[in-house]
């Protein structure tokens, strides 16, 4: 005998979803890849990592990693299947159709043929808390596509809190983007990256005072206050941050409090190179 709740459950977890959840055929990571996007839902900690390889302007292959519930994994698995063979414009169209289906109550008939199976996610719409599970993979993909169209290959998506509509977040800059941009910049004197050296003390991301976009303020140190290469290094850091999409203003603040100490701040590898044991 089935109780009232159980009918809803069967509807939420249709067999086809559980099959997709267990299907490992597109799980993993492509290396090399053209597009890389990593998405998290900070509420539940679910993660998805997407890698896409392109060939002649079409999606040649897609893989996904991370972890998540049946809904988020199955939706992502269906997505990767639907993307292969299509163009990036097709990918955006599919994403639009899927979001209309999940968020605006569009009928299953409106789903493109490549996304037919996604009709099985209809039951999720009755569980508002779970809709974001179904969207995590797709939102991460859209972020990856946006980033790629601006010349990037690597992007971070963070699910928005329930109180945000998402519309205003288009140009958000993440700490990871800043870290990824400045991390590889090398100290011109000793040829070790500033990340390895531990010269970056902190960053602040705020809306720019004028116009659209974000203002990034980075606090960093130099290996010595009198470092003759200081201005050169600061210029490279400045340039690296300015290239991040969505950044309007860049401030690089020098700080010698605390004074840089390679023994406690540099990575083990950098210490090896510097001869500190």
């Amino acid at each position: 005998m089935m109780a009232q709740g159980d009918a809803e459950l069967q509807d939420l977890y249709r067999d086809v979803l559980v099959d997709y959840y267990k299907d490992a055929s597109r799980q993993g990571r492509l290396d090399p890849h053209d597009i890389h996007a990593h998405g998290v839902n900070p509420v539940c900690g679910d993660e998805v990592e997407l890698t896409l390889r392109l060939k002649d302007g079409r999606v040649d292959a897609v893989r996904y990693g991370g972890h998540g519930c049946v809904i988020s994994r199955a939706a992502t698995a269906m997505m990767t299947e639907a993307l292969e063979g299509g163009s990036l414009a097709d990918a955006r169209r599919l994403a639009g159709a899927f979001k209309a289906f999940m968020l605006e109550g569009a009928s299953a008939d409106s789903l493109p043929a490549a996304l037919e199976e996604a009709a099985a996610l209809a039951g999720v719409r009755k569980f508002p808390l779970r809709v974001k599970c179904a969207l995590l993979g797709w939102n991460t993909l859209l972020q990856g596509l946006d980033d790629f169209s601006k010349g990037g290959h690597d992007v971070e998506y963070q699910d928005t809190p329930l109180c945000q509509t998402g519309a205003q977040r288009k140009d958000m800059v993440t700490f990871k983007q800043v870290g990824d941009a400045v991390g590889p910049v090398k100290d011109p004197e000793i040829h070790i990256s500033v990340a390895e050296l531990g010269l970056i003390y902190g960053a602040e991301i705020k809306p720019a005072q004028t116009g659209d976009g974000q203002r990034v303020k980075l606090t960093m140190s130099l290996t010595s206050p009198a470092c003759p290469y200081g201005p050169m290094l600061l210029a490279s850091i400045h340039g690296a941050i300015a290239k991040i999409p969505g950044v309007r203003d860049v401030d690089v603040d020098l700080s010698f409090s605390p004074v840089w100490d390679p023994k406690t701040m540099a990575s083990e590898e950098a210490k090896d190179q510097l001869g500190i044991f």
């Binding site: 709740g5 459950l9 977890y13 509420v43 539940c44 900690g45 049946v70 809904i71 569980f127 779970r130």
Partner: peptide
């Protein structure tokens, strides 16, 4: 089974449990 899916089935039995990282990501 992902903890969220566990929580969903428990809820169908009227049982409220917590799922996720419990605001302890480093411990997880």
């Amino acid at each position: 089974v992902h903890p969220h899916d566990v929580g969903q089935i428990f809820d169908s039995e009227g049982v409220a449990i917590r799922v996720g990282h419990h605001c302890c990501q480093p411990l997880m």
